[in-house]
Computed example of a mutant assay.
Amino acid sequence: MTRAVSAVADVTVFLLLVGAAAGAIAGGVGVEKPAATTNPAAAQASTLATSTASVEYELVVPPERPKPPDHATRRRRTSHGTVAELLGEAAMSGITVDGERLSRAGTNFESRVGVITRERLHSRGHRTAVRVTWSPYPGAPVTSECRVGDRPPETVDVRAATVTVPSGMENVSEPAREAARTSGYDGVATVVAQSVVDGLFPPAQSRYALRGDYPSDGLMAARYERMADLTGTAVAVERQSTTEMDRDLTAALAARLRTDMRSRYDSPADAARAVRTSRVRVTVRTWSP
Rank of each mutant, 00 (worst) to 15 (best):
A176S: 01
V172T: 06
G149L: 01
V158P: 14
R159S: 08
A160R: 15
V148A: 00
V172P: 04
T164I: 11
T155E: 02
E154H: 13
G168W: 02
G168I: 02
S167T: 11
M169L: 13
E174R: 14
E154K: 15
P166W: 14
N171K: 14
T162A: 02
T143L: 10
P166Q: 11
E170P: 02
S144D: 05
A176F: 02
S167Y: 11
C146H: 15
P175H: 12
C146L: 05
V165C: 07
D150K: 14
V158G: 07
S144K: 01
R147Y: 05
P175M: 02
M169N: 01
C146R: 12
C146P: 09
R177Y: 11
P166D: 10
P152H: 00
A161Q: 05
R147K: 12
P153R: 12
R177T: 03
V172H: 07
E145D: 13
M169E: 14
V142W: 13
V142Q: 05
R159E: 14
T162N: 07
P152Q: 01
P175I: 05
R151K: 15
G168M: 05
E174A: 03
S173T: 14
R159T: 15
A160S: 15
P141D: 06
P166L: 14
R177N: 02
V158F: 09
G168N: 12
P141C: 05
G149A: 06
T164D: 06
D150I: 03
V142N: 06
E145M: 06
M169Y: 09
V158R: 06
D157W: 11
S144H: 10
P152D: 00
E145T: 11
E174G: 02
G149E: 02
V142S: 08
R159P: 09
P175F: 08
P141E: 00
D150E: 14
R159M: 07
R151T: 13
E170I: 08
R159I: 00
V148S: 01
D150V: 10
A161W: 11
V142T: 08
V158H: 08
V148K: 02
T164A: 09
V156C: 05
P166I: 08
T162L: 01
E154N: 14
S144E: 04
S173A: 13
S144M: 01
E154I: 06
R151C: 04
V165P: 00
P166C: 12
P141L: 03
R177S: 09
V163F: 10
V163P: 04
P152G: 04
V163Y: 11
V172S: 04
V172N: 05
V172R: 05
R159V: 08
A176W: 05
E154V: 11
V156E: 06
